[in-house]
Amino acid sequence: MRRLCTAAVALGLSVGAAWAQTNLILGEAGPNRGARAAALQHFVDTAEANADLQIDVQWGGALFKANAARQSISDGVADLGTIIGVYFPQEMVGYGIADLPLQNADPWVGMRATDELMRGSEAIQASLADQNLVYLGTFTTSAVNIGCKDAAIRSVADIEGLKVRGVGAYGKTFGDLGANMVAMSIYDAYQGLDTGLLDCSQGYSYAVAALKQQEVMTSYTLLDWGQVGALGIFMNKDVYDGLPDDVKTALNDAGVAMADKMGELVTADNEAAIETMRAAGVEIIELDAAERDALIERGRTYVDEWVENANDMGLDGAALLEEYRALLEKYEGLRDSQGYPWERS
């Protein structure tokens, strides 16, 4: 039986009863360190500063693991928490648009486009409501790049024959281009590269530095391709519907602000990671635009596949994709004309 409300929300007992402090429990599968944790804490601090609200964050999968997050939040194990879309490709298909191999490599642009789509699409909101979920805010793993040992990817043709660790549509595209795909987690890629089980590993710049993979890489190719962005904060709808309006507003405003904070943090971390790689002697390669376009074209199969899957789940996949592309252009334009929010005076 679904637990309707885990939040300790009480009515005051005085005449003209008013809401007392709202206490919420947030489940996060990841540890309390790194850019995502800092952005999540920013969400908590911002929401608490703008409403009579306290959010208790349970880190490190204390309440549920990442692959159980959707059902756990829906059932009320936590009031709200982080959901990673790739674990739930059917149920979270609308959110999965942020994982597609489009030309969408800027973390801030991708997050703000995803955030606006999730808030603006009635169809996606209805799909989430059917799962007893409400969207609050989004993160990103940032741009997908690839690092190699004793190999270098300067063109699409260089991928053929390499032993590659890759995931999602990006990994599938590497396989289509002739790579020999190796099933391995990003956390094991250091050993894989070091021992020769891998030639190359798909990853993200800040993660390379965090996992010290620059020690076993000789080249790192900036693909300017796309990102994995379908991970964010969702809330149990029964709990959300029972909240005072000012608390709802505080949570949603904090969710929007979280994308700006995450963009600032992960952009800085990625830039620092590139310098760390250079200092370690790793060759930094910027993929030629024509080669990048070839990657995007080969990945189109998986964009089309997403459209079909979205249609099968009752969404208008083509319309959502068109809207998302327009939002990416909107936020690219804002970035180019005004700069990032954290750079504006």
Rank of each mutant, 00 (worst) to 15 (best):
residue 191 Q to A: 10
residue 220 Y to A: 04
residue 116 E to R: 14
residue 176 D to Q: 09
residue 279 A to L: 08
residue 328 L to T: 03
residue 341 P to A: 08
residue 53 L to P: 01
residue 345 S to D: 13
residue 330 K to F: 01
residue 188 D to I: 01
residue 188 D to A: 14
residue 268 A to E: 12
residue 15 V to H: 12
residue 136 L to W: 05
residue 40 L to N: 05
residue 144 V to R: 09
residue 113 A to E: 01
residue 28 E to A: 15
residue 24 L to P: 05
residue 223 L to S: 01
residue 167 V to E: 13
residue 263 G to L: 09
residue 48 E to Q: 15
residue 173 T to I: 02
residue 202 Q to T: 03
residue 179 A to L: 07
residue 10 A to N: 10
residue 155 S to M: 05
residue 103 Q to F: 10
residue 269 D to F: 11
residue 313 M to G: 06
residue 162 L to M: 09
residue 71 Q to W: 13
residue 281 G to S: 03
residue 227 Q to F: 10
residue 200 C to F: 09
residue 218 T to D: 07
residue 193 L to A: 02
residue 200 C to A: 12
residue 46 T to F: 11
residue 283 E to Q: 12
residue 191 Q to M: 11
residue 149 K to H: 10
residue 296 I to A: 14
residue 6 T to F: 10
residue 110 G to Y: 06
residue 159 I to V: 15
residue 319 A to R: 12
residue 305 E to C: 04
residue 110 G to K: 12
residue 5 C to I: 12
residue 340 Y to I: 00
residue 28 E to D: 08
residue 108 W to D: 00
residue 25 I to Y: 05
residue 51 A to E: 02
residue 160 E to M: 06
residue 264 E to D: 12
residue 253 D to T: 11
residue 127 S to Y: 04
residue 101 P to K: 06
residue 32 N to M: 13
residue 295 L to Y: 01
residue 255 G to M: 06
residue 339 G to N: 10
residue 46 T to W: 07
residue 79 D to W: 03
residue 112 R to L: 13
residue 139 F to S: 00
residue 168 G to V: 05
residue 33 R to S: 15
residue 56 D to A: 13
residue 180 N to E: 13
residue 276 T to E: 10
residue 83 I to N: 03
residue 55 I to V: 08
residue 266 V to E: 03
residue 110 G to R: 14
residue 210 A to W: 02
residue 61 G to E: 03
residue 178 G to A: 04
residue 247 V to I: 01
residue 131 Q to A: 12
residue 250 A to F: 09
residue 250 A to M: 10
residue 98 A to V: 01
residue 266 V to Q: 04
residue 280 A to K: 08
residue 332 E to M: 11
residue 7 A to V: 01
residue 342 W to Y: 06
residue 213 Q to R: 13
residue 340 Y to S: 09
residue 242 G to R: 04
residue 225 W to P: 08
residue 156 V to W: 04
residue 171 G to F: 11
residue 324 Y to I: 02
residue 15 V to A: 15
residue 327 L to E: 03
residue 226 G to V: 03
residue 216 V to L: 08
residue 62 A to F: 03
residue 264 E to Y: 11
residue 22 T to H: 08
residue 275 E to A: 14
residue 185 S to K: 09
residue 245 D to V: 09
residue 173 T to N: 07
residue 27 G to E: 00
residue 170 Y to E: 09
residue 243 L to A: 04
residue 236 N to C: 07
residue 319 A to Y: 05
residue 57 V to M: 08
residue 119 R to N: 09
residue 344 R to S: 05
residue 259 A to S: 15
residue 342 W to N: 02
residue 139 F to K: 00
residue 239 V to N: 04
residue 220 Y to P: 06
residue 299 G to I: 00
residue 209 A to V: 06
residue 75 D to P: 01
residue 142 S to M: 00
residue 294 A to V: 00
residue 49 A to T: 01
residue 281 G to V: 00
residue 326 A to C: 07
residue 76 G to S: 09
residue 24 L to R: 03
residue 154 R to E: 14
residue 236 N to H: 11
residue 282 V to L: 04
residue 153 I to G: 07
residue 191 Q to R: 11
residue 119 R to P: 00
residue 277 M to T: 03
residue 28 E to M: 10
residue 61 G to L: 06
residue 278 R to Q: 14
residue 148 C to T: 02
residue 130 D to M: 13
residue 274 I to F: 08
residue 15 V to M: 13
residue 345 S to I: 03
residue 194 D to V: 05
residue 204 Y to V: 02
residue 291 E to C: 06
